[in-house]
Nucleic acid binder design. Structure first.
Length: 331
DNA sequence: TAGGCCATCTGGTCCT
DNA sequence: AGGACCAGATGGCCTA
């Protein structure tokens, strides 16, 4: 028996919706009538859809019942029950198919926006894509970190900046961020070409390189730390980009790829950037712990001193879970 | 094999 | 009526 799996768009086959499938004789999309509905993506074939399928089968019965109901209609109280005629079912299906297409398109737009957000994150790797939730967390942290840098004169080279950046992130993402910081700080370091695209040969606006340097480090290809994004700070402090209007750089779906400092004249204040409050969900207890940030920071700050001894020995890169290192080499 | 992430379908709700 | 938005459900893919 050939089971037709659900195929996503862009994978060479057209998506066949359960409704389209239902339009036929309830056989599978590829015509294999032996496939039962539970095999064909029962998720898409929801309860109501299945009920509609049965309605199809019972339609003739309904027509007979309708005739009988007509006789009793005038005697019955309450709102008149709408009949599910064939025409109504057709309309319903057409609406549903259109709604599905809209929903897909909407989600694609949402994903495009998320991709745009990923592309302007300080840590951008083509090989290890941030998940949706991690992208949002990192974006939040990035905003907070930059705000703190502006308000408190906190250096983007500081440990506190890094800690803010990593708050609430999962361990792999924290490692990724730390690795990106390293690479951005050491442009001479070995990088995979596909990961090099985001790095611009610009100094950080606060002068010099990011300090999480690791000279001579056999830099793992975590991704890139795009120091050019730090030009946000320069712009907001009265730099050459200060007067750009937000519209110049667009926004939302269809925004061109980030190719310069998108520096809307934001007024960063404590109103806009509320102090982080403890929340049952933030940080996620199973993902984040200060000790882990310590661990990563130590990794990035000690230049991987293989001769170091003492309490931090367990932070040696050799102890980084292999998952974070191997996974980025995958493709 | 379990768990995380994701895409999709779907029905409900709100708004125009 | 129809569109936008949302959350629940489901199954596929990938990795440890």
């Amino acid at each position: 028996m050939m089971i037709k799996p659900y195929v996503r768009q862009g994978e060479g086959e057209e998506v066949v919706s359960p409704l389209q499938w239902m339009d036929g004789d309830m056989s599978s999309p590829d015509g294999d009538a032996s496939v039962s509905s539970r095999h064909y993506r029962s998720g898409g074939l929801s309860q109501q859809a299945r009920e509609m399928g049965s309605e199809d089968a019972e339609e003739d019965e309904e027509d007979v019942e309708e005739a009988q109901e007509d006789e009793n209609e005038s005697k019955r109280r309450g709102p008149k029950k709408k009949r599910m005629t064939k025409a109504r079912q057709e309309r319903f299906r057409a609406r549903r198919v259109k709604a599905n297409a809209r929903e897909r398109s909407r989600m694609h737009g949402l994903n495009d926006a998320l991709e745009n957000l990923r592309s302007i994150m300080p840590c951008h790797s083509k090989t290890q894509k941030l998940s949706k939730i991690e992208t949002l967390r990192l974006a939040r942290n990035y905003i907070c970190a930059l705000s703190e840098a502006l308000e408190g004169g906190l250096s983007t080279e500081s440990r506190a900046f890094m800690e803010t950046l990593c708050k609430g992130l999962s361990q792999p993402t924290t490692n990724l961020v730390a690795g990106c910081v390293q690479l951005g700080a050491a442009p001479g370091a070995v990088m995979r070409p596909e990961d090099r695209h985001g790095v611009r040969p610009l100094p950080t606006p606060l002068g010099g390189m990011v300090s999480y340097t690791s000279p001579g480090l056999p830099s793992p290809p975590y991704g890139t730390f795009d120091s050019a994004h730090l030009l946000h700070l320069r712009a907001m402090k009265g730099g050459p980009y200060e007067n750009h209007s937000p519209n110049e750089y667009g926004g939302g779906v269809g925004t061109p790829p980030y190719d310069g400092p998108p520096t809307p004249p934001l007024s960063i204040s404590s109103n806009l950037v509320p102090k982080q409050e403890p929340s049952p969900h933030y940080p996620p207890p199973h993902h984040y712990s200060p000790s882990h940030v310590d661990q990563v920071l130590y990794q990035t700050q000690t230049s991987y001193d293989t001769h170091s001894e003492g309490p931090y020995d367990s932070y040696h890169p050799a102890h980084i879970p292999s998952r974070q290192i191997t996974s980025v080499y995958r493709d």
